[in-house]
């Protein structure tokens, strides 16, 4: 009788070890997938350099694959400018919202704003793009008296809205995570709530806030559909905020369908994807440096 119980227990323990290996395999699959992405996209992208010189790709703005010209500089510049502008527009609003939710909002309002930020994330990017196309672009055309209304301004406004939830939720967590005694000490010294927020809470939460901004940039630089619908899709360097231009993502999504796999043209699109991938990996490393890596 005793022996069978022991046997049963041994069996369970053996089973336990087996499950543990299985779970480890699942977890290690993450590393396997990201490495395969880097290797396969990298290999396909780097084979561009068999036909195109790196100098031409990175330093030239002439993009005309039909004519053998593969200068992707204007797309890289477009992506970076759109991202920067989006952060400049979106971060102040998002950060103020985060402060509000963490310290000022009455509990019931916070209970409304939490699901609201989830909804922001859930709205499909084509819907953002469609709203940009049907409201933002005509609005800019009418009120700024410009030719089309497509361009960096429309793009960065839509992107600014799309990155709000990332900035809000991560910054709010960071502000709430500041130890209570710090805040109480400041208030006890006679500081007002705003002085406490500005001089104590925000500096203490800074790593988390910066993390949220870098993640927002990662989201903005990789955003494809919404950008493609409002940027104008013209392979030219942006001369102003109102001229149609292109980004890495919009160019890939427009041209991938008509390029033969493995041609210099197709490979150069994979090279653009590799540039995007490198940018987002660099951002993750930057977040690690900031101390608290958290990904939404």
């Amino acid at each position: 009788m005793k022996a069978t119980t022991l046997d049963y227990h041994r069996l369970r323990l053996g089973y336990d070890r087996y499950v543990r290996y299985l779970l480890f395999v699942c977890a290690f699959l993450m590393t396997f997938i990201i490495l395969s992405i880097i290797i396969f996209v990298g290999k396909q992208g780097l084979s561009t350099f068999a036909d195109v010189s790196p100098v031409e790709f990175f330093c030239n703005t002439k993009w005309d694959p039909g004519d053998g010209q593969y200068g992707a500089l204007s797309f890289i510049v477009g992506s970076l400018l759109a991202t920067m502008l989006a952060v400049v527009i979106g971060a102040p609003l998002g950060l103020t919202g985060a402060v509000f939710m963490a310290k000022i909002a009455p509990p019931w309002l916070r209970e409304v704003m939490r699901p609201a930020t989830d909804l922001y994330v859930a709205i499909p990017s084509v819907v953002y793009g469609f709203i940009g196309l049907t409201i933002m672009v005509p609005f800019i055309r009418t009120y700024f008296h410009v030719g089309t209304g497509f361009g960096l301004l429309a793009t960065s406004i839509i992107l600014a809205v799309m990155i709000l939830p990332t900035i809000i939720s991560i910054s709010e967590d960071a502000i709430r995570a500041v130890p209570r005694p710090l805040e109480e000490a400041s208030l006890a010294l006679g500081a007002t709530r705003w002085q406490t927020i500005r001089r104590v809470l925000l500096p203490a939460a800074m790593p988390g806030i910066l993390t949220s901004i870098v993640l927002a940039m990662a989201r903005a630089v990789g955003e494809t559909m919404a950008v493609q619908m409002v940027i104008g899709n013209t392979p030219l360097l942006a001369k102003s905020l109102f001229t149609p231009t292109s980004t890495l993502t919009s160019e890939i999504v427009i041209e991938m369908g008509n390029t033969p796999f493995g041609s210099a043209w197709g490979n150069s699109l994979f090279l653009m994807a590799l540039v995007l991938l490198s940018l987002s990996l660099i951002m993750i490393v930057a977040i690690r440096r900031l101390g608290r890596g958290r990904v939404v």
Partner: peptide, 25 residues
């Protein structure tokens, strides 16, 4: 640490890049 870093990286890969990867594989 490597697994965590990989998961975070995978979460930030732009979806168009995942699309192209899916296309290759």
């Amino acid at each position: 640490d490597l697994i965590r870093l990989s998961t975070e990286m995978l979460a930030t890969v732009p979806s168009i890049v995942l699309g192209l990867f899916g296309m290759i594989i």
